[in-house]
Design a protein around this nucleic acid. Structure first.
Lengths: 264, 264
DNA sequence: GGCAAACCATGATATAGGTCAATCTGTCAC
DNA sequence: GTGACAGATTGACCTATATCATGGTTTGCC
């Protein structure tokens, strides 16, 4: 009744062996006794997530229809064209969304991080694919049940509309980038957006983690791996950034980066 | 009480002299006597618009907060960065949405036609600008009052979410186009989307109207005017399309166009 | 600790599409 | 009908980025 399995098609894709153990407490040793024991209560990204608008009682309803899962790098999460039976909330790690052309050309349309919701643009079938970048944790919802909750909790729907609105604005920024910016401007814009995201979550905006590969960055910015690599090198040479251990990047001058990002 | 003017900043921009006369009947000679006399009753795009979900009584509420306006080519409708005080519903003609870089480079993020809603991605300020392509007619709403109606009519909000979802999917398609398609694929995709739109509205999908300039098309597809022009010529040479009078294009083989659009 | 498989960097070269420039066409005002 | 102006087309040339090729570096696995 508490943890329900609403289908297995995704489990088989996305490594069930990696299912978060801390969720098992809901089903076995510990009985579910109230909001304080539910996984959402301890969830660090709840406030910035779609579920942030819900109060304790509502979260209890929410947790009933949720399954937690973990994916490792390259695990497919959803496949373009498949029936859109699930929606997700990313609770940790990073996820990439992408579309493919018949000949294999790929466009990454977005990266999702903790707190991001996957499934706003839901038709009958998924209109894009999603894969974990590194390890990624997420809450999965049966879409039908999720939509039923939307009906019951209008503020959830309002929140979703707000998120959709934000994503649309972001998408328009990305169109400007893809259509009109140079390679250098593209990369600076990308780094800047990672930096701002870091800042919003309370981290140092001048040292950012860049968990995705050069190839992924290229497919996100409409560039090749080689151009991304060369452009990183150039920015480094020009003293704009410094490459640190562990896929981290030090931004030396955020204002300069901002100017470079807009060709100003 | 019926036609209220909720601000003039836009009127001054968007040629008040062009205000639709058929709206004046509401304010003077004919008294407003019920839904059948309101402009929405005769509106041909209502069914496909956001207002299509409303019943007669609800439409009456809707019409109370609406102002009709007409813009001619290049009339600015909204300006990026300005307070987002209004939302719009396009009832005729075409509107382009765009973003600018400091040096003037422009990316058109979308074209709106009859039935399309402008203002889903609304923050405190507009995140893009909008201009009429040719003559365009629209219903304008004070945003605050519009949002109040959203609260009263949940189905309106649901509809808006659905529209946002569609737009997001479209935006992702456009990112694939901008980031990964060739000039020829871009133009074919564009023509195809115009064709499908025509078909949806009950017109012949094989003869489409292309009201926007080569320059606008270029700024939409991430190309220059010259490349758009050359690519049109090539498609013509290859017998894919034929250019007709009055900015119309004949599509000779829709299936071929579809293949060309995806590089298949 | 060493091997394999990704991933990353960099050099040489190619090319799609941009830039610059000239001409053509259509439209509207008068 | 004519002049003027905006938009479209076409050509010649250029350049930013792609492509191809090689070697280096990291990561993970036994």
């Amino acid at each position: 009744m508490i943890a329900e399995n609403d289908g297995i098609s995704l489990m088989s894709r996305c490594a069930p062996k990696n299912a978060l153990n801390d969720f098992d407490v809901l089903g076995s040793p510990l009985k579910y006794e109230g909001p304080l024991d539910n996984p959402c209560a301890a969830c660090e990204v709840r406030e910035m997530s779609i579920c942030g608008v819900l109060d304790k009682d509502e979260i209890e309803e929410f947790v009933k229809i949720l399954t937690r899962q973990t994916c490792t790098a390259h695990d497919p999460i959803i496949d373009e064209g498949e029936p859109a039976d699930f929606v997700f909330n990313v609770t940790g790690g990073a996820v990439k969304l992408f579309k493919l052309l018949p000949d294999g050309r790929r466009q990454i349309t977005g990266f999702l991080f903790e707190g991001d919701f996957l499934g706003i643009a839901m038709n009958d079938t998924y209109s894009y694919s999603a894969e974990a970048v590194g390890d990624a944790h997420m809450c999965r919802f049966n879409r039908r049940k999720f939509e039923a909750l939307l009906d019951r909790f209008p503020k959830l729907e309002r929140r979703l509309l707000g998120m959709a609105s934000n994503e649309l604005a972001q998408a328009q920024d990305q169109m400007l980038l893809l259509g009109r910016k140079t390679a250098r401007e593209k990369l600076c814009t990308f780094l800047l957006s990672l930096s701002r995201r870091s800042e919003k979550r309370g981290y140092d905006p001048s040292v950012i983690s860049v968990p995705m590969s050069r190839n992924d960055i290229g497919d996100y910015l409409g560039l090749t791996t080689e151009t991304v690599s060369r452009t990183f090198t150039n920015l480094k040479k020009d003293g704009v950034i410094r490459l640190l251990e562990g896929n981290r990047v030090k931004i030396n001058d955020a204002e300069q980066l901002q100017d470079l990002a807009e060709g100003a």
